[in-house]
Write a protein that binds this DNA or RNA. Structure first.
Lengths: 161, 161
DNA sequence: ATAAATTTAATTGCAGGCAATTAAACTTTA
DNA sequence: TAAAGTTTAATTGCCTGCAATTAAATTTAT
């Protein structure tokens, strides 16, 4: 049995022995797998750039929103990022420990927690300024291909959520 | 400040207050985020179907390969799934505990661990037969759109790995 | 043949994700 | 207004992912 790496699909040969009975049950016929793998590999591509700043990929996503809006509730962050408090609460606590963000109850609605930028978190925006360009480079997509893919993924996301 | 959910991009309005200085530092201009979110949402869409069978999404991916090839080394699984032993070893141990797979050293190369299907794991193939169709339904993509997206993601994956 | 280098899994430690539950604050309803 | 229902975060417990290290087996180079 010869298995070729998933990264050279053109060189991928059929398995010599009994194939899967259900042709839809093949990894290389799935949409889910390239989506899953590409997402992880893209996150990994961010890693070296983000590591310099001491932050992780989901923390970076939180910052993208905070840099834009200055402050957001946990609920708003969750709506934008499609993450729940089980993920966000501990993540935000780690960001709070680093003095990047503040967390306080909304006085007008004590159920809500408002997450705001602290100076150190604000300063990170400049230092992270080169990150998008670096990644765009790595992707090596034309603007049109980039936008087309972004749009398809956005549609898929809308369909799934 | 009004924030619209990420799922209604058409209704997304510009923030009323000071926008991000760097236009590339906006969540809705990124490719990374829809990829990241779509991947998680698609995994979540598998969840109810896989839960009936007692398996998780990455375990399902391992099964897709094992159903096709009967047995693979940890290294081969890692090459196909782009996962390392730090992820695979504990995952495979859990699958072993459920008597779905066997793990044994290759007698011809004691460094390698061969993962093989046990009867209970083999039986799961039939029971999981409907999963791809269910998901295809949920995606609501034409075959052409499905294939186009799959191809683009595969290309992205190749570029990133 | 043996020392050095490489390959393969396992281990450790940390940070997500997420389902399910809990608790508190607020809103709606009777 | 009191009770019931809803909303919002936090918590718990489990399963990934992944970087870094370790240990054993194998291969390569000397």
């Amino acid at each position: 049995m010869r298995l070729n790496p998933v990264l050279s699909p053109t060189a991928m040969s059929k398995p010599a022995d009994m194939p899967s009975a259900n042709p839809l049950q093949q990894l290389d016929k799935q949409l889910c797998f390239p989506l899953y793998a590409a997402s992880r590999m893209l996150t990994k591509a961010y890693q070296p750039h983000l590591q310099e700043l001491g932050l992780t990929y989901p923390q970076y996503l939180v910052f993208l929103l905070l840099w834009q809006y200055q402050e957001l509730t946990v609920k708003q962050l969750g709506e934008q990022l499609l993450l729940d408090s089980g993920t966000l609460t501990p993540l935000l606590k780690r960001m709070e420990q680093k003095l990047w963000v503040s967390r306080r109850r909304d006085p007008r609605d004590e159920r809500s927690v408002i997450v705001g930028l602290l100076p150190a978190g604000r300063d990170l925006q400049q230092r992270a300024g080169h990150v998008p360009e670096k990644l765009l480079e790595k992707l090596a997509l034309t603007p049109a291909a980039f936008e087309a893919l972004r749009q398809q993924l956005q549609n898929l996301l809308t369909q799934l959520a």
